[in-house]
Design a binder for these strands. Structure first.
Lengths: 134, 134
DNA sequence: ATAAACTTTAGAGTACACTATAAGGCAAGC
DNA sequence: GCTTGCCTTATAGTGTACTCTAAAGTTTAT
């Protein structure tokens, strides 16, 4: 698979894919070179990019991602170190989920107020007394 | 309250606070100037910075934040527009929470495997057959 | 009174994650 | 065979969010 095809199937740009390669996020299982020096991607490259997106979506930087992937690939770290990393990441993500939940509650209160302002001014007045929006 | 004091109580640097001011995230209720031209912050500035942090924590950019705050401050937008924005933000955050939940599940499976590798190699073997970690 | 520790400004620098350009080589269709 | 379009590299540029420096003024402690 050439770079444009991989770009299309993953929704990334060719620039980004080359950039990730430069950052060391691929290895021989994902890309090789044809005789003409064109990159030739395997199906594993698609999975790798999905994994990258997934980790990136929960706030992993490229350098962190590189470490994780290197780990999965080569077992650079001890089992203990990996357990440590996983536990820390679980903590982080649980915290983040609480933050998001709180924001959701805040937004729902804001929404209730705005809808009341539209449909039920008396209720809006009452809500204003109960909450601070700022 | 002078800038260093505000920095200390909010955990931000003075640089950052000045930067936020330059970006238009404060108004007369939060900062004024003393005779010597030093900034003098009110207690409302603390609340404003907490609010900024909260929104930033769920992925709001400074320019988006500026719009939101301008809204709360001056009612620039119609109620309809604000309702629209809130609903969209709620959607976004619910999606993000699902993503985080999925990552949490993945990490817990990884952890289970790593702990089994340490304490119960037979179980680890069995787990390997059931899941792909990559 | 003078040094240390604050404050101000404009502007430069950093880190991250792309995103684009230039200059050239390769490949497919007419 | 020539144009169009894809591929390659190195390198430069963009946007975001800070982070710091320099030069100058102000306040505080000794």
């Amino acid at each position: 698979m050439k770079i444009q095809e991989l770009a299309k199937t993953t929704g990334l740009t060719a620039y980004t894919i080359r950039f990730y390669e430069k950052e060391g996020l691929f290895d021989i299982r994902h890309v090789r070179r044809d005789d003409n020096n064109y990159r030739n991607y395997t199906d594993e490259a698609i999975e790798r990019l999905k994994l990258i997106k997934k980790f990136q979506g929960v706030g992993c930087s490229i350098s962190e991602l590189k470490e994780i992937l290197l780990d999965v690939d080569t077992n650079t770290r001890t089992n203990e170190q990996v357990i440590e990393w996983i536990c820390q990441k679980i903590q982080e993500i649980e915290c983040k989920r609480v933050e998001y939940k709180q924001m959701l509650d805040t937004l729902n209160i804001m929404l209730e107020y705005r809808l009341a302002l539209k449909n039920d001014p008396k209720k809006a007045q009452a809500l204003l007394k109960g909450h601070h929006f700022d």
